[in-house]
Amino acid sequence: MLSGLFSAFMLHSWEATSVVAVAAGVVGFFVVLRGSTFAAHAIPQGAFTGAAAAALLGTSTLLGAGVFSFLAVGALARWGRRGRHDVVTALVLVIMLATGSLFLSVGSQYAQQTFSLLFGEPLAVSSAYLWPTVGLAAACTGLVLVSYRRLLLTSAAPELAGAGGVSPAAVNFWFLLAIGAATTLALPVVGALLVFSLMIGPPAAARSLTARPGVALGLSVLLALVTTWAALVGAYWSNWPLGFFVGVAAVLWYLLGRGAKAWGHRPRTAPAVGSSR
């Protein structure tokens, strides 16, 4: 039944999903740490719009998704500095989706194409797509790892980082850009709607399992890989969309993290109230 899982045709899928998982695990770790869940949900909608635009113009999906992710990131970074973050995020999201629906309705797309843009279609990853994916993944993983300490510092104590000469706004922009890159490369595999599930589920569990940031980051990547591999096997076996397995796995990871936290609830060194020692 599963013998075809490792056929030459499926090999690209294995490679692509693994690359996506590594990037999502690394970026997602900071998404959870910085509480940027909503942004991580909104940026992929930009990628969706870009993919729709690309279909309309007949250009590469990856290019369209990349350009529109970048637009979404720019809008978030520019407007998010003033005004409320969640409001700006919601508005960018609906602008992107509405524009996407305009492209879809003006063009003559098939619903099937919309479906795969939203929910992904990993089994059809082509070899032409693989190398740009690897390049993008390397870029965004590199971006996060290079600014690892700055991201950690601005996540933990923004005012401290500002005093140390690190501009939280600049760090935030680069971070959003990393989300945009991860989104772009994950879009054809997992789909616009479920990229963020892959970004928050594994890191949420990893964060609860260990207090050391480096270990948590590694664990997050590992869990993301496990998630995509399991999803790929599930999708191959059942022919159901990959996104379903990713979404369900994210919920399971979250519950696992909550359970681990509740189970290992030892006397903490710092009580919640009344002490900052």
């Binding site: 030892r266 006397p267 009580p271 919640a272 109230v273």
Partner: peptide
């Protein structure tokens, strides 16, 4: 007396 998170505050 108040205990929080297992610590006597």
């Amino acid at each position: 007396g108040v205990r929080l998170g297992g610590r006597q505050v």
